[in-house]
Nucleic acid binder design. Sequence first.
DNA 1: AAAAAATTAGTACCTGGTACCAAGAATAGT
DNA 2: ACTATTCTTGGTACCAGGTACTAATTTTTT
Lengths: 191, 191
Amino acid sequence: MAKCSLNKNTRQRQLSRYLEEDPFLTDEDLACILKVSVQTIRLDRFDMQIPELRERVKNVARGGRQLRTMAGGELVGDLVDLEIGNSGMSILPVTPAMTLSKTSVARGHHIFAQANSLAIAVIDAGAALTGAARVSYKRPVYCGEKILAKAVIKIKKGNKYMVKVTSEVKDEIVFKGKFLVFALQEEGVPQ
Amino acid sequence: MAKCSLNKNTRQRQLSRYLEEDPFLTDEDLACILKVSVQTIRLDRFDMQIPELRERVKNVARGGRQLRTMAGGELVGDLVDLEIGNSGMSILPVTPAMTLSKTSVARGHHIFAQANSLAIAVIDAGAALTGAARVSYKRPVYCGEKILAKAVIKIKKGNKYMVKVTSEVKDEIVFKGKFLVFALQEEGVPQ
DNA sequence: AAAAAATTAGTACCTGGTACCAAGAATAGT
DNA sequence: ACTATTCTTGGTACCAGGTACTAATTTTTT
């Protein structure tokens, strides 16, 4: 029974690993991956109290449904002005999902994300990457406030850009950052 | 036909309103709410190109998954080790949602977010804020790779901490950052 | 009243399951 | 070597929440 038990256990561990990675797998998918029958998968799920696909999907949907922030576009915040190769501006309203639950203070990486994505947007290139950044947070930003980020290209050398971003809430500076950005040539990017 | 058309239109508007509010409603639920037959609901959905429940839930789930990384928890990535007041480690698998659509290179602010949130997590405080950061990206990270971030507190002075974070993919350093973090006293934070 | 539009009803079929029963294979204990 | 136990597989009936399609019925328009 040892060998069989071992197989069963390792299979069940694998099963949960696969499902953690991708909860959208059907029993049939799993059976195929783990080279056992669908029934075995079902027994395994039952053993491990793992609900069926539809329930899993529902759970993910309920858990993840909140405010959108970093998801959709390439840009965090709403672009209000863009002069490619020169400067740009974006507005990010701070929603509850972006704040530390205890304090309703916006988490730093959201402010960074707005600035960083704006810095990249002003670059005149199909794609660009941040190489380095030096940022400082001047004061906390609270839920409900709107962050206006302004980016200006300061230096351009070949495919290297230095972009300065200043973020304000009602004319008060909350964040400053210098971003070193590299423009990528359209091809040549490994997959 | 005017009255009927009107009824149909208003019903369809109501339908989409109800579904926006709660995408988990079945056709039967909707039929009950709107006092028409299930078939009518189906025709309406077909008219308005609204997919069936399971598809809707899936969409929400997929959307939710992307956001979860930035929106859901306070931490970006999965904490694998944490010694509060000393060091911590987290893993962030790079999903398609995090990458520049053209190149499948992870956008910088996700890598920053993982590091930043880890830096805050290692601080021994109810809440903490990033005051400044100096970061550099050593090489692009691609979709499918897993980023292992390691944070260590280097200096502590009162409520000020200097945290160094190094992120690697398969023992190769992809990102380095120094974060200046301030611990917040539990109260006294304005709403 | 006839034509057109909208609604409802009914059927066959699909996916991804549950719940249950029985047969077959593998392993353990003796 | 043989039996008992555990694992695995197969099969069936059933369910929710649909699709796709046809046909009948009601409502509205002309």
